[in-house]
Write a protein that binds this DNA or RNA. Structure first.
Lengths: 223, 223
DNA sequence: ACGTCATCTAAGAACTCTCTAAGAATTCCT
DNA sequence: AGGAATTCTTAGAGAGTTCTTAGATGACGT
């Protein structure tokens, strides 16, 4: 059985009812640890690695806003959301400017909290869309292509675009017309595609792109 | 006369009353440009560099959520807030999962919008004082550049700024427009960048800055 | 095996983008 | 204000890319 490794989330919440309730709501997405006061929360946030923090505003010993301020001053950039019963705008602004990434008022919707958590954890790991096939990895944005042996090959814009199209759906056979339409002016001669396939095979290897006679081309996963 | 360089913000909003109103609210913090529909907004967001985007949900031609989705698919990570009259939780979740960093319902508080913009644009990345690449080390503050052989090269302000931009993210390809926007007035001719790249190559070495044909320039880490 | 059609390859024309140099405009400093 | 350094513009030369063409090579059906 496959056990997914859930990312770890630190919930700093003193309410003995609300704490476990929120933890339960998030248990599908995260492995949640509850800290019952600000001091313990700060210590855990400093000493361990967390995907995100959910911090109650009104905490005993150490206030939620002060906690986040302390974290940020120490250079800890873990994404954090402040939860609060106090919904005034001034409170929100203070929380955000203390270094929180988001601020939600109770009562809150579980789905929205989860979506906002996804949003703040996503932006810090801007994932470039990489396409891999065989031994190669293509970054269509920078048009850079690298093999698993560290070899780097420079591609032109058209070469990269064509390869990206094919690599987006391995095993699928693309007709020349389909590739042309997606690539450039759909009225160009069909043999333009042939030429670029030739260029790519020359730069990578003969077997990267497979010809399907009478139909078009495909990226062969070997099969 | 001292002219404060305000960061540039793109507001995509079709309402002829609300648009200028929001722009006015933010004019103390940002130099705001308004795009009246999704298509123009998408084009501006793709071709120029912005500190943040504020996008209305209901836009003519191209919907705000679809716009952000399109941007993210192309690898553009500019922080974005969606504004909407529709406040339902499902809408919020859809917007956040499309790639928006935050989501606010109208009517909204100007102070909160500004605080949320500060939150999503705040960069926690501790900027290292020294930037190194290849055999060179640049101190952007003092504009001094030294090679590992002890050689020292004097740079002008613009040369240093350009080099610092490129060196801050090695391997990343910067478009001329992006560099221009970060460097000076974004409306200058693109070939200014060419000229400074030329100066730098002359002072350092031909291979320090790599040209990516059709895209822009990059500092090559070699491999 | 043979003809036919599809695909591959090479070479070059046309085009676009980039480089470079020189000078004009601006800013900075004394 | 004057001179020097810096910044910006322009334009032709140069390099890289894209597309076309045509003959060579390979695949398929009878």
């Amino acid at each position: 059985m496959y056990i997914p490794e859930l990312p770890r989330l630190l919930l700093i919440e003193d309410d003995p009812v609300l704490g476990p309730l929120i933890a339960e709501l998030l248990s599908g997405d995260y492995e949640v640890r509850i800290a019952p006061d600000g001091q313990q929360g700060l210590h855990l946030a400093l000493t361990q690695d967390w995907e995100a923090l959910v911090v109650d505003r009104g905490l005993p010993i150490l206030d939620g806003v002060a906690l986040i301020q302390a974290l940020r001053r120490k250079g800890v950039t873990t994404p954090a959301i402040i939860l609060t019963a106090l919904g005034s705008t001034a409170e929100k602004i203070a929380g955000l400017d203390a270094g929180a990434n988001d601020y939600m008022s109770k009562p809150f919707d579980a789905g929205e909290l989860r979506a906002r958590l996804r949003a703040i954890t996503r932006s810090f790991a801007a994932t470039p869309t990489l396409l891999s096939f065989g031994e190669w990895v293509l970054d269509p944005v920078s048009r850079s292509l690298r093999s698993s042996y560290g070899e780097r090959v420079a591609l032109t814009a058209k070469e990269s675009d064509l390869l990206a199209l094919l690599a987006a759906e391995p095993e699928r056979v693309f007709s020349r017309q389909e590739l042309l339409t997606n690539l450039a002016h759909p009225d160009d001669s069909h043999s333009v595609i042939d030429t670029y396939v030739h260029y790519l095979r020359k730069k990578l290897s003969r077997s990267v792109i497979r010809t399907v006679h009478g139909l078009g081309y495909q990226i062969g996963d070997g099969s």
